[in-house]
Design a protein around this nucleic acid. Sequence first.
DNA 1: GCATGAAATTTCAAGCTTGAATAATTTTCA
DNA 2: TGAAAATTATTCAAGCTTGAAATTTCATGC
Lengths: 167, 167
Amino acid sequence: MSSKNNPSASRKTEPEQVKQSLRVWLKMLKATKHVEAVVRENLRVKFDTTLPRFDVMAALYRFEEGLKMSELSSALRVSNGNVTGIIERLVSDGAVLRVPVAGDKRAMLVRLTQRGRDEFAKMAAAHELWINEIFGGLPGDVTAGLLATLDTIEHAQGLHSGEEHDA
Amino acid sequence: MSSKNNPSASRKTEPEQVKQSLRVWLKMLKATKHVEAVVRENLRVKFDTTLPRFDVMAALYRFEEGLKMSELSSALRVSNGNVTGIIERLVSDGAVLRVPVAGDKRAMLVRLTQRGRDEFAKMAAAHELWINEIFGGLPGDVTAGLLATLDTIEHAQGLHSGEEHDA
DNA sequence: GCATGAAATTTCAAGCTTGAATAATTTTCA
DNA sequence: TGAAAATTATTCAAGCTTGAAATTTCATGC
């Protein structure tokens, strides 16, 4: 966080700054899509599953007691209707169980079956390695720097709350 | 690129490093999704269009002479069949034109109509500002650092070739 | 009690995305 | 030449995703 020759981090829309912002964003998008593509492909080929399924299972894995549909969709930051479909398929695959909520006839609790937990544990372990193959090759200080920068973005913006998968 | 106490950027799968990789990836994914969501929402509300349409138009805007379907799909790194559908809708909206390729009865050249060009120019200008609202607030040196790090990832990996949109 | 609004979920139409299969054309090269 | 391989694009089934509408149930206040 030095200051060098930066006269106070101007927030104006100078053409040069706008271009730089765009450049950073496009590069970040490209890198992210690349990693996502690797994960999707690996999930497909090695586990015959999809990223959305993996994400849902990751959330449920973390909350062993189960999650309500609404909690799940807000945790994953996707629409309600979306989760309905994915859960439907996971249920029919025997990876997820739906149980009615005690005092509320509207709500449904979804949780992994033991089989679902076992499956996910394997996928998560593999997933960690895939990611490490990509990011683990970076020098430690670069990784740390990236983490710090992303934190800066996160705090500059309002993208707080609602955790993601991470097994 | 100092060395500090990093004994040569080990590429092993030490648990600590794996966790760090995962942490970085999840944070990067989260930030990217946030920005994408902002762009999608703005495109929807302010231009009644979608991100995939925007991406296609961006590619065609850059190549004024037009692109073959296969060139388009490989530029955007999406499947062939995908592009077919998006182009279909853009054509029926009058934003894109299909023209047969001279010496090849298989191929089709797609290009923006004047109307498509005008529409995209407006969207691209707005898009630049949306992105700058997010990234422009970062100190200049942080932005530069991020760009450098992403370059490192890009080079460490093989995600070269095929440019993206950028208006 | 009971109406009214809030909350939880599903349903729905539209569009995006993929990988595989198909069809048409062009290229290669024996 | 002419058969086989490669290229270009579309079609297709399955699944993901959204925002909006509809449904059911719950909570609140009168």
